[in-house]
Amino acid sequence: MAILKTEELTYVYSQGTPFEKTAVDHVSLEIEKGEFVGVIGHTGSGKSTLIQHFNGLLKPTSGKIYLDGEDIWADKTKIRQVRFKVGLVFQYPEYQIFEDTVYKDIAFGPKNMKLSENEIDGRVRRTAVSVGLTEDILNKSPFELSGGQKRRVAIAGVMAMEPEVLILDEPTAGLDPKGRDMILSQISHYHKTTGCTVLLVSHSMEDVAKFASKILVMNDSKVFCYDKTAEVFKRTEEISSMGLSVPQIARVFNILKNKGLSFDEEVYTVKYAKELIIRELKKRGKI
């Protein structure tokens, strides 16, 4: 059964003023449990607005959202419980850090859940390890850390709540390639070990291609497509015409295809491309 489901979800900003803008336009979606979904779209395509509906931060102008089959707005007083089940890591999450030690900041979410001291301690240490923070950092002030480390502290703060659905809005924005790869592989590892559902928002296909099992493409406040990663990459040309960058390797293979060298499957990761090329060369007896 779908863990998250939306029905004709619509959200209009500043309704009734000259600044009125429809950010999400009749979106109907079903996200299966345990899936790793990449959400991509251009700046202003409505992806950030959409995900803020999933944990009840924004109330839809019209339409419904179901979590585990239950309408999240059916009982307003339970909206906090929804936020514990659906963890949301905002863009540049390091700006939400406020405690005087890293440990306390990661513990902030679990504390709000009113868990026992023991449970909180266990969770803080576990998530710190899973985002690659060492024991000695836990007692430091988060404001002394580097940008990349702060980012990981902030992500750990949401992971420690152990949500069933973890949503990350551009978790790699502004990081160097090394930091980016590290955070992405840690998120992927977290997904595999806990089996939770992950939604990774990005404007770069490159980021999501490696890990996502399904991709949701948003364009102009609407869902452009929501399908398995390989299926989405069959439409590379349409996607690039929307101004989204397609992974370099997919572009290379697209050119190869135009030159007459086509493969049965879509190629969007370097690892897979390497395997394919070796296989092809072997077949032709070149190596």
């Binding site: 931060l57 906090r80 936020r83 905002f90 700006y95 939400q96 406020f98 902030f108 949401v158």
Partner: peptide, 28 residues
């Protein structure tokens, strides 16, 4: 929004809860 996502209760009825909720917002 970010602190609400981490479970800060801004709509709580108790005054003490509201005062406590201000700290995670003012400092950042």
């Amino acid at each position: 929004s970010a602190q609400k996502a981490r479970g800060v209760d801004l709509d709580g009825s108790k005054l003490m809860d509201k005062v406590k909720a201000i700290v995670p917002i003012i400092i950042p």
